[in-house]
């Protein structure tokens, strides 16, 4: 194995390590919010520092590989993809942290009916599944798995698009619960962003493996190999 191969292998391992951490942050953010577990929420906020440190390290590693090894072709695309995935992961980490902050700020348990009609649990699970699968696509270098992400995002978009009306109706009938309802609406917006980050990462994986640029293309084109 060449020196560059060793560096690239290490970069991949470090990226997966950060990815695993971010996915765990999202799972913990979900648990902390739905159970109003403030200790768990504080853990998420504390671990966000680790996510940020990982981002800086990956940036530096990419910079060093560019400077010392002048990667080209598939190697170049891999390092460029990692650089962008790194930003996507950091933003997803921020989202998990801000959901955890809501968990600390909310005082009363959420009305179960509100959780049900907004489909927030379903949305959380879909977002977490997307993050897990896009990581699997990266790990296995599998663009078929990466392409599935684009379809899965449709569910998040659908829940997000209906949320305004559903929450507004709920607030009209439950004026005592305005604050938690608004928090949930914010969380829905944030989870929709998690879906977008997953899609961006799927695009980067396809770019690195197939040298195809899918950014700003329609989903029907993205799904075609």
């Amino acid at each position: 194995m060449s020196h560059l191969d060793i560096e690239l292998k290490q970069l991949k391992a470090d990226t997966i390590k950060m990815w695993t951490l971010v996915n765990l942050q999202l799972v913990k953010a979900k648990e902390s919010l739905l159970n109003l577990d403030k200790d768990l929420a504080r853990q998420v906020i504390l671990s966000e520092k680790r996510v940020n440190a990982s981002e800086l390290k990956l940036d530096l590693d990419c910079e060093n590989i560019f400077a010392l090894f002048n990667p080209v072709a598939v190697d170049l695309r891999f390092v460029l993809a990692v650089l962008k995935i790194n930003s996507n992961l950091e933003r997803t980490g921020d989202i998990a942290e801000s959901i955890a902050k809501f968990a600390i700020n909310v005082n009363n348990n959420f009305d179960l009916k509100l959780l049900e009609i907004t489909r927030i649990v379903e949305m959380f699970e879909a977002a977490i599944k997307m993050m897990d699968e896009v990581m699997e696509a990266f790990d296995k270098e599998n663009t078929l798995i990466a392409r599935k992400i684009f379809q899965q995002d449709e569910l998040l978009d659908e829940i997000n698009n209906k949320a305004n009306t559903i929450v507004a109706d709920y607030i009209r009938n439950h004026t005592e619960n305005i604050e938690p309802a608004l928090y949930l609406l914010s969380v829905i917006r944030k989870l929709e962003r998690v879906g977008d980050q997953s899609k961006n990462m799927a695009e980067e994986i396809i770019f690195y493996i197939e040298a195809k640029v899918l950014k700003h293309r329609s989903d029907s084109i993205k799904n075609k190999k």
Partner: peptide, 17 residues
């Protein structure tokens, strides 16, 4: 040639493999 060579042998050569 240096970003997306078509032939695998070219890719192996430019990437040093």
């Amino acid at each position: 040639i240096f970003t997306n060579p078509k032939n695998e042998r070219t890719q192996n050569y430019v990437t040093g493999r």
